[in-house]
Amino acid sequence: METNFLIQTLASIVAASTPVVLASIGETISEKSGVINLSLDGSIALSAMTGFAVAFTTGSVTLGMLAAMAVGALVALIIAFASITLRQEQVAVGFVLTMLCIELADFLGNPFVRRPGPSVSHAPIPYLSDIPILGPVLFNHNLIVYLSILSVVLAWWWTHKTQPGLKLQGVGERPESAFARGVNVHRLRFVYTVIGGALVGLAGASYSLSIKLGWSHRHTSGIGWIALAIVIFGGWSPWRVAVGCYLFGLLKALGSILQRNSAFVNVPTQIFSSAPFALMIFALLLLNSEGVDRLLALLPPRVARQLDRAIRGRSPGGLGQSFIQE
């Protein structure tokens, strides 16, 4: 009974974390190449709405997912064009796009509010889902959930184990040296920003077609900012980003368990739904504060260095800066 409950909770955390995982991994890829896509919160909203609207009108969930990815990729393309080609400030363009996408999603999504529609069908993976514990937690979901897990593995493999992945790191870390070695920095940044954007779009689709079915006002609100914070929290490393995502999922699950507890009946639900967001962002602040520096200084230097590397990542050297390639 107890273990059953635990397995069920873990499985629901894996499923519920899908959008955060997809969006954070997409953002990690884009930031690794040096481009901050700050529009996440808006991109997710607009792609969630588009994904649902397309699936609703065509009856095809696959088309919905593809449309959502196209929207995410398009927004990312605008950011890449504005910041790389037109040399506008990345953060400014991203922020404006966040708001534009949210307004667009509200306006265009109006006819689809609270309409029942299609969803991604449940598809346990044969054999794998029979493995005790691991099976029900990881392999008893639907396609989008599997894609989110796959995105972590693929992003890690690509960035750390392949030749083009090393180029990607080089473009983000030291664009000058990459360019001197004959890498087309601008083109790679375009490509990876758009790929990352497509993943963000899929994150939107995972909302409206898998975990919070349908579309309504403020359907996805706040999740994009969390994803952006988790990328920093995870130090731009796919594995640690994924850990951050599932930790956030755990926090949310704990919140809803506490909320059902009779001791907290008087606390308004808004507190429970917004507390994980605030906690997550303050965890980030704490981790980077000087207090941690002082604590680390108390430890022997070797241990301190390793611990520092384990809990805090370093941002790519060229992140957010425009590189003039001439």
Partner: peptide
């Protein structure tokens, strides 16, 4: 200044906190 985290995230965190305080 002392938290060394981009002010966008500090600001967003404080927004959530202020919103929670108002509701409480």
């Amino acid at each position: 200044v002392y938290g060394k985290v981009h002010e966008i995230f500090g600001g967003l965190g404080l927004n959530y906190l202020a919103q929670g305080l108002a509701i409480w």
